[in-house]
Structures are given as C-alpha cells and as structure tokens.
C-alpha cells in the first residue's frame, strides 16, 4: 500500500465478462467498511469483445480515480493475454491473480496478429508474483460461464486488506436483491475461486 493509504486494484478482461460488475462489488465491500472509493473504466466501446480495464481505488480519501502505471497493488486478469497487457500497471513485486483461459479475438483468428505463447511466463519474467487458475473451467463445472466473475472475486478474497466475508456479503447482497435463486450457486463459485487461488498460491511457492 502506498503512503497515502489508498489501495489500488486493477481488474482487466474483455467486454461481456463481468469485469465492471466485479469491480463494483469490490467497491461496495470497501464502502461497507467505511472507506472512500472511486471506480473507473478505461473501456472502448465496452460492450462487445473490446479490452476493459476497471480501476478501483479505496482508502480514507480518494482523489484521482485512475491508477497510474507502476502503482497497482493487485492485478486481476479475467483473461490471460489481458493480464499480460496490463501487468506493467503493477507496483514492483505486485500480485497477479489470473484466469488461464485464453479468449482469442477475431484479429488473431484471421491471422493479423498472434496470441502470445505463454502469458503466464511473460508476466513472471517481469518479476511479479502470479497465482493462475482456470476460472472458466470452474464456472462451467458449476454450470454457467457467467459465474466466472464470482469465481474471480473469490480468488481475490484472501488478498484484500479486509476480511473475505465482507466481500462475500457484498456479492450475496447484490444477487439477493436481483436474482435470489442465484445466491447459493454464487456462494459456491466464490468458495471455488477462493480455493483455486489458494491452491495456485501453494503451487507458486512449491
């Protein structure tokens, strides 16, 4: 955490993956604990398949909503190449939580560009810590790809300056209000993501 006590979390992925919703839930958790918070996106025409990077800053008082390169405490990548694209935003030694799923865009399909061979290795080579796991597979196992963002939130749970329960509460509150039937499966997704990140952390040490 930098000297002004503001925590910087950058959540990145692709339009449609639920990146912005995930960041908003994180923000709500931070607010529930009495923090000031600002959330902003750098998103092109965000809806369809474009790059999305969502910035969350929270602490006693937040001024600029934007995280500057080299100052993010935590980078959460909903997709492999996107985690790689944004890893320079981390502070030296910062942590990356990443989904190993690879979502290949049409420009790669039609042969104009190449998808990086091993984003994970590239990020590690820059000296960042990485905990990687396949969030898409976990979500599909639970029966719905759209649970991916809750899986990712679960993965963050043990890497925040507040208890995991506060985050889980914020998630369940949101679903409780909008889609009550989704509460249980989201709780499962959260726990699965948390376990996956823990396992990835152990692997990273081993």
């Amino acid at each position: 955490m930098p000297d002004n006590n503001v925590t910087n979390i950058l959540v990145v992925g692709i339009g449609g993956q639920g990146v912005m919703t995930a960041t908003e839930i994180l923000a709500e958790a931070a607010i529930a604990l009495g923090h000031d918070a600002k959330k902003t996106e750098v998103a092109g025409m965000a809806q369809r398949g474009g790059v999305v990077s969502s910035h969350l800053r929270f602490g006693p008082k937040v001024l600029s909503p934007q995280i500057m390169a080299g100052t993010a405490d935590l980078l959460v990548g909903f997709e492999s190449a996107e985690a790689m694209r944004w890893c320079h935003m981390l502070r030296p030694g910062g942590l990356v939580l990443m989904n190993t799923a690879r979502l290949v865009p049409p420009v790669v399909d039609i042969g104009l560009y190449e998808y990086p061979d091993d984003p994970l290795a590239e990020i590690k080579a820059r000296g960042y810590q990485v905990h990687a796991f396949d969030a898409m597979a976990i979500a599909l196992e639970l029966g719905d790809v759209r649970l991916g963002n809750t899986v990712m939130l679960g993965a963050m749970a043990d890497h925040l300056p507040f208890p995991a329960e506060v985050l889980l509460d914020a998630i369940l509150k949101r679903f409780g209000a909008r889609k009550p039937h989704m509460v249980e499966v989201n709780r499962k997704a959260f726990e699965a993501g948390r376990a996956a990140a823990k396992m990835a952390a152990e692997e990273a040490v081993a």
Partner: peptide, 17 residues
C-alpha cells in the same frame, strides 16, 4: 522515471455481436 513499459499484446478492437 517511467515505470515498466507495457508488454506487446495484439489489439482487441470491439467486434459486432
């Protein structure tokens, strides 16, 4: 000082649905 330079990754322009 400029922090680390961004990694080279393909562009991902928005697509039609």
């Amino acid at each position: 000082e400029m922090p680390a330079t961004p990694a080279q990754v393909f562009p991902r322009p928005p697509t039609m649905c």
